[in-house]
């Protein structure tokens, strides 16, 4: 049984003005998130990702559909009962949302007080958590004395305080620089691997998905348009919207504007070859073209690595006899997806 199950979940907000229509933020979403997953939810801003994640801990009530946490239906629970559920689900935020008036220690202790822990237990648990996130020396500091990365580490310690099984990360690294992002992602990975916490990450950053996610769902206009294994979704997106999104975050596919420049700058025919898994097929492509006696150059491209599996796109300008090129491309098509762009 999945740890988090969403079935036909929708969330709409009533119309703001008299003439306005109700806004559907989440539209008939069904997902299953297994214990131990790092589940990425990606999409452009406004796609409904943040609303979706807030349905999981019922910060926002769903309009319709069923949400089960560890088998328990939460859509029918009352606010008071939901508070108990929330103790088992940690959450971290883009803007960290630390209590500025409290010390680091008091921030991390807060959910434990809510959960009714004893003073001595709180003290021991906070020490343990601060050591885990590497901030033992900052226990007495105020949030405004910390860097962004340190703030998010406090946020993570606070979210994990009550030993939740699920951690929701809402654009948790979007306000951080690339280096700090990697630090925080490494920490989240440890949270998942060492403590077995299931993590749901909302993001629009490819890096985040690439470094920690095991599964991914692509959202567009409130709907999950594609979901599955990260490698599959990113190397061969099926839905046009996910192709568009993946195209903007994955290296190697020239945008229409870039393509126009390439066409102007390079003679001959321009083809994009897409590879999945392994470098052998790339070598074959170059070999096929060389054997056909064609002149070719690499004009655009990139190789991506997701957890040790590579995929990529290479755009080549090929010059020579047209029939020879046709024949060579047919051979290339045995090893890679070939799209002729001129």
């Amino acid at each position: 049984m999945a740890l988090v199950t969403l079935e036909h979940v929708s969330k709409s907000y009533p119309a703001a003005g008299r003439a306005a229509e109700a806004v559907v933020a989440v539209d008939d979403v069904s997902l299953e998130i297994e214990a131990g997953d790092v589940y990425g939810i990606i999409g452009y801003s406004g796609a409904g990702k943040s609303t979706l994640v807030r349905l999981v801990n019922a910060l926002e009530p769903a309009t319709s559909g069923s949400i089960r946490i560890d088998g328990q239906e939460i859509t029918s629970l009352r606010e008071r009962e939901l508070r108990g559920i929330r103790l088992g689900i940690g959450m971290i935020f883009q803007q960290f949302e630390l209590f500025e008036a409290k010390t680091v220690r008091a921030n991390v202790a807060y959910p434990l007080k809510v959960a009714g822990w004893s003073k001595a237990d709180i003290r021991a648990r906070v020490d343990e958590l601060l050591a885990f996130v590497g901030l033992s020396d900052k226990a007495g500091a105020r949030p405004d004395q910390l860097s962004g990365g340190q703030k998010q580490r406090v946020g993570i310690a606070r979210a994990l305080a009550t030993r939740p099984r699920i951690l929701l990360a809402d654009e948790a690294t979007s306000a951080l620089d690339p280096e700090t992002t990697q630090e925080v992602l490494a920490l989240l990975k440890r949270v998942n691997e060492e403590q077995g916490v299931t993590i749901i990450v909302i993001t629009h950053e490819m890096d985040v998905i690439q470094s920690i996610a095991t599964k991914v769902a692509v959202m567009d206009r409130g709907r999950v348009i594609e979901h599955g294994d990260v490698f599959d979704v990113f190397s061969a997106p099926r839905h046009p919207s996910s192709q568009r999104f993946v195209g903007t975050v994955v290296k190697g596919v020239p945008s229409p504007a870039e393509l126009a420049v390439l066409r102007e700058r390079h003679e001959g025919r321009i083809v994009t070859c897409s590879f999945r898994d392994g470098d052998a097929s790339q070598a074959r492509v170059f070999l096929d073209l060389a054997e056909a006696g064609l002149e070719f150059e690499l004009v655009y491209g990139g190789i991506n690595d997701i957890r040790g599996r590579a995929f990529g796109h290479l755009t080549l300008a090929v010059r020579g006899d047209d029939t020879a090129i046709d024949r060579a491309l047919a051979a290339v098509a045995q090893h890679a997806d070939v799209t002729e762009v001129r």
Binding site: L59, R86, L87, L98, F99, Y110, V114, T162
Partner: peptide, 8 residues
């Protein structure tokens, strides 16, 4: 919202 997410 953060405090609510902690069950307060």
């Amino acid at each position: 919202e953060a405090a609510r997410s902690m069950g307060a």
